[in-house]
Design a binder for these strands. Structure first.
Lengths: 148, 148
DNA sequence: TTTAAATATTTTAATCTTGAAATAAATACC
DNA sequence: GGTATTTATTTCAAGATTAAAATATTTAAA
């Protein structure tokens, strides 16, 4: 294989190991500070962005996880009173899933702390490097969008 | 929160979404092409780098997953004949886990194809951007190493 | 040497995750 | 309108994952 190919593989390994490391740290802190799992936090974050709610399939696509996975997590969040399923007028197969008031206020608290954790964990990166990598990943995401 | 904090959070979201997207694609291809799961591939890759084998705890630390998780995956790989546990002379609590000859040749095949998939998937990134991001992530890993 | 503390691993219960199959409802086609 | 297809979601079985508890062994301490 070519040198470029090796370089891309090395980048991928580093990308993966970086995100796994940060993810593990965040998972641990969410558990000890807020008694919430990372998957549940991810779902809450997705729903927070959409006050009117999201369809199960939209959640699944946005979070890049399977439909069945979302079903289970939402079930547990509903049981905990953070999320509700709102029956819809038009389509009886679907329901809008959205945060309850408690879900919204709980998440707001977590989100503030979460942002400070990330700021802390990524603090070793100078602002210009943050911007550089962020920009590369953004253009890569657009590239993937087109080639799909 | 500060602008820099927001920028770091945005970087983190992009990092996470990028690795999840690539990971999902690789997972799918490993399953259809080689009938192997991603976690098993990761374990095989770790063991391939260490011909003499690794301790369970070394695997756990290297892969950044829990001890119990490694136990289960190794159990299944042993059942499939790709990995073996070699009893050790000194310490009766531990055993060296290593690839069987079949595990080694199977992995070599997968690894070649895997590298070409990554080269394909990250093909949208110009070599200089690959090097730039790779280098930032590398120095970040060293930074984390020190601050731990 | 006996006991206490530390280390390495496995086990367990709960949750997460996937891919495939099942279910239900809406849409398209005749 | 009635049937077939597509779409949206849930259910299911197998595997993956974590955190905590249990087990087994080694090392340290008294």
């Amino acid at each position: 294989m070519s040198t470029e190919s090796k370089a891309r593989l090395r980048l991928w390994v580093r990308l993966l190991r970086t995100s796994r490391a940060v993810e593990n740290e965040i998972r641990e802190r969410l558990r000890t500070e807020f008694d919430v799992t990372l998957p549940r936090f991810d779902v809450l974050a997705a729903l927070f962005r959409q006050p009117d709610g999201m369809l199960m399939s939209e959640l699944s696509r946005f979070l890049m996880v399977s439909n069945g996975n979302v079903t289970g997590i939402i079930d547990r969040l509903v049981a905990d009173g953070l999320v509700e399923r709102a029956k819809r007028n038009g389509d009886r197969r679907t329901s809008m899933v959205r945060l309850t008031p408690k879900g919204r206020t709980d998440f707001e608290t977590m989100a503030r702390t979460h942002e400070s954790w990330i700021n802390d964990l990524l603090g070793g990166l100078p602002p210009d490097e943050v911007e550089a990598v962020s920009s590369v990943l953004h253009s890569f995401a657009e590239y993937r969008e087109i080639h799909s």
